[in-house]
Structure formats: structure tokens, C-alpha cells
Design a protein around this nucleic acid. Structure first.
Lengths: 253, 253
DNA sequence: CGTTGACTTGACGGAAGTCAAAAGGTGTGG
DNA sequence: CCACACCTTTTGACTTCCGTCAAGTCAACG
């Protein structure tokens, strides 16, 4: 059978014979087979090899504290499990085998070489893509497994962090000029329902949203309500470096 | 104020002074300001410049045929709007300004240079990230704006295409060894509800799901039920090249 | 043939949607 | 400075989709 990664990528572009050979060689290395229902990569794991699905079926999923589970994507042959190691300190979700799944392992060395030969801009663009994807994954969990109030709370808390990172938060307040209808569009709820939940959150003393400004009255409790658990925005390094912005952002997580 | 892109990326890694200078220079070029509620990038547009939000607030969103709208992500200063042009023929969603938003435009030339100096593997990895993100975005629309039946239908149709691309579909049938509970985890529904919907779909003559094999009895109608509209998997080039797999995959879209 | 895991069925409850109308803001032009 | 239009927010009554709980069936396998 043809290399499924090349098969997939050729739907996007044509490769030179040389490039194709190199891609094919990636699958020639170490292989590992995982039985059905086993964990290919655990949540929180620090991955050093990239896993590529060669046969079988796997899922990118997240286990929630309440025992629930959200599958964010199915991985079929040709799909990569953990490209995000380029950015992430550790996995922010797990990869599980649905049926018996065989993976090709692409060694860390190959990858590190790539990183060093990349320009700062390339890295920046790529990281941007990957951290966006992390936010998207979290939003899927929101929509799939969290109630309306949790969902809104989660969105607000996420925005609090993201605005903190770019240093535009003062006294837990920041400009967030969205209408209730736009909040509805973002959370997959209706404007009417958003309105009712906002009232609840206000009377709970969690937030204020007035004059296009969001004030997080009680960040800790908001975080709790949101079940904001994972460090999915991956600002760990910032926390370690303890720089000006980093310290503030790290405090929130 | 500091360059918001650098500010954000420095939370991930340290840059050399040289790299930082080059990143900063990106924001020194052309700028464009978009009024509130205007479209920064239209769905279907072919973008030649990368847009970086410098100030204001924008949203990555999709307008649905029924007039509804799903916001998939908010874009704050430092966020890139359209890195996906590296893979996509055209945007599969639109970017709209929520409040007045200023963007820095990174010219096509800068980008093309990057592409040529990238190795095939790097491209492969990056594309993989980006097409995964496209699938994630579609899943958010599923969860936010589609009912249970549409959601399941959409998942099935997506899997049909993805398995077709890697040439593992015969007679609209392919191995899809998931339990109803796993389908529930993937769609954000309950196993019980999945069961009832599957029964409906079976009696509608849309699909069969038995013995770990999914048979799409009526692909056209399944696609309709799923409101599967966008070409979000971006196999256009395959369609153009009319190769063996491509022709089949293209027929589905 | 009994155990296990997946699937099926029914009765009931609740979170969120729908529809419709009123109230509150905001900006523009007279 | 008022009046008007328009948009956003708020409120209430009613509906529906989907979740919950719980029991029961079916098929595979040792």
C-alpha cells in the first residue's frame, strides 16, 4: 500500500521525486502497534517522537474531571498525532487507539534539525497556527460537554488571559466590545439565553459587562465556574522566565 | 506600545535580538484599518497578504446558509488572520471586524520566500497542522449550529471523504470501528440519543453501521442532511490534477 | 451457558430555543 | 435640545430537543 501521509499531502501539492523519497523514508523507521482502547499518548506526556498513524483508527480526546470524554478528532492513516510538541511543553490532551493502531515514529532528532533551520518568522507563523488549534480544541470541549454558563465563563476567562498576555488588562477590566448577539454566535447559544445567563453571572458577582467593557469581578470563582483546568494556552515558558507580562499571565493559570 | 505579535510569541520562546528585529519589521509595512462590522477577509477570498491584528477586535466566523453565524475564534492584537493561505486555495470562512480593527499586512513575497526555503517535511508537518485546524473549525460549527442528526451526518460524510482520500473506501463502505458511545463522545451527544438518531438514519436509507463497517447508502442525501457545503478539506488541487484518488475524492465535494 | 460489553427501548425531566413585545441606549438630523 | 429611528437588551409564555435513569435485549466469547 502507498504511504498514507504522502497520499494525503499529494492532495495539496505535488512533490519532487526527491521530496517524496524523503517523506517515504519517514515511515521506514521504528514502528509501534497499540491495542484497541489503549492510550497512544497520555495527557500531560512530554513527547519526543512524532507519531504518524499508519493503520487503524485513533482519536484525539480529552477526559474531563467528571468522567466525561470529548473526542475532538478522529485520526486515520496518514494523520499526525502530536505535531504540537513543537510548541507545547506537554500534551494538553490524549491520543487513544479506537481499534488496533500502528504508528510510525519520527525521531526527535529529525525534528530538532528542522527547528534550527527554520527562520524566526516561519516558527512564529507555525506556532501561531498551533496555538490557534489548541484554542479551537478547547472550544470544541466547551460546546460538546459544558453547559451554557460554563461555556460563557470559559470564554470570558480565556479572553482575560489572552488580553493579559498582550498587556491590555487593568484591574481585571478590559475592552471587549461585543454584543450579546455576538456572544451567542461565539458560544452556539441564542441571544436571549445569553442575556439570561449574563444576568445570573452578574448577580453571582462574577463579572460585569457594560459599556463594551468586561470586568471580571471574581477571577478565581470565574475560573472555577468555567472548569478552566488545562494550561491549554501554553504560556508555561513565560511563567518560567518570570518576565513582566509572564508573571501576570502565569498567575491566572 | 510593544509589538503584540512578539509579545505573544515570547511567551513561547526567547528570540535572538536579530530575530526580534525581523519580527518587528513585519509590522512596519503597510497597514489597513477596517471599520466595525466590516469584513476584513471574505469567505472564498484568495488572500495574497497575511493580516495581523494590531489593534481592535476581530472574529473568525462562518455564515451559514440559514442566515445563522458561528464565531469560531476571537482575534485580539497579535493574532494572525489567515496563515492558512499557505495551504488553502481560498479562505473557507471569513474574518470580520467586531470593533474598528487595524491590521498590518505582511506581503506575499515574504511568504513565498519562506515556502521555497522550507523542506518537504516541514511543509508536510505544517500542512498537517493547518488541515487539522480546518477540520476542528468545521466541528465547532457542527456543535454550535447543527442539530444532532446533521452533526452525525456531517461526521459520517467527513469520514467518507477522508477515507476516500487514502483510498480505503469500496462501494461507499469503509471500516469504521467505533461504538455508539464513541460517536456520542465525538458529537457531544449521549449514547442513547446517538442510538435513536442512527435508527432514524437507517430507516431513512442514509447509512448502515454494522459490524464496525459504515456503508453510506445514499451519499448525496447524506451530504444534504449534513448541510455539508464547504470544501473545507481543501482537496481542490487533487480535483484539478484528476489523479486516481483525487477524482474520487473530488466527486464527493 | 453464563458473563460481558454493546445496543435498544420507554418514561420522564430539564436546559435551551422560539416567538413576540417592551424597554432602554445611542446617534443623527431637524 | 428634542425627536426620531435604530439597535441592543430585557422579559414572559410556551415548545422542543436532548439528557437522564433504568430496564431489557442481543451477540460474542471463554
Amino acid at each position: 500500500m502507498q504511504n498514507p501521509l504522502t497520499a494525503k499531502l499529494e492532495h495539496y501539492t505535488a512533490f519532487s521525486p526527491d521530496e517524496r523519497t524523503r517523506l517515504d523514508q519517514l515511515l521506514m523507521g521504528k514502528r509501534q502497534t497499540f491495542p484497541a482502547r489503549s492510550e497512544i499518548i497520555a495527557d500531560g506526556e512530554k513527547v519526543t517522537e512524532i507519531h504518524l498513524v499508519v493503520s487503524g483508527l485513533a482519536a484525539r480526546s480529552k477526559y474531563l474531571p467528571d468522567g466525561g470524554r470529548q473526542i475532538m478528532a478522529f485520526l486515520v492513516p496518514g494523520d499526525l498525532c502530536d505535531v504540537e510538541v513543537f510548541v507545547l511543553e506537554a500534551m494538553d490532551h490524549s491520543i487513544t487507539a479506537i481499534s488496533e493502531t500502528e504508528c510510525a515514529l519520527i525521531p526527535a532528532k529529525t525534528i530538532e534539525t528542522l527547528l534550527t533551520e527554520m527562520s524566526g518568522l516561519t516558527k512564529g507563523l507555525w506556532w501561531s497556527t498551533m496555538s490557534d488549534a489548541a484554542v479551537l480544541r478547547e472550544r470544541i470541549i466547551d460546546h460538546g460537554r459544558r453547559g451554557a454558563k460554563e461555556r460563557l465563563a470559559h470564554l470570558f476567562y480565556e479572553m482575560l488571559i489572552r488580553y493579559t498576555v498582550i498587556d491590555q488588562v487593568t484591574d481585571n477590566s478590559f475592552s471587549f466590545p461585543v454584543t450579546q448577539e455576538e456572544l451567542a454566535d461565539a458560544t452556539g447559544l441564542t441571544p436571549v439565553h445569553i442575556n439570561r445567563i449574563l444576568q445570573e453571572m452578574r448577580s453571582d458577582g462574577l463579572i460585569e459587562l457594560r459599556h463594551r467593557t468586561l470586568t471580571v469581578t471574581d477571577p478565581d470563582r470565574l475560573k472555577q465556574v468555567a472548569r478552566f483546568e488545562s494550561d491549554y494556552l501554553h504560556f508555561k515558558r513565560a511563567a518560567e522566565r518570570q518576565d513582566r507580562h509572564g508573571k501576570k499571565a502565569a498567575d491566572l493559570m
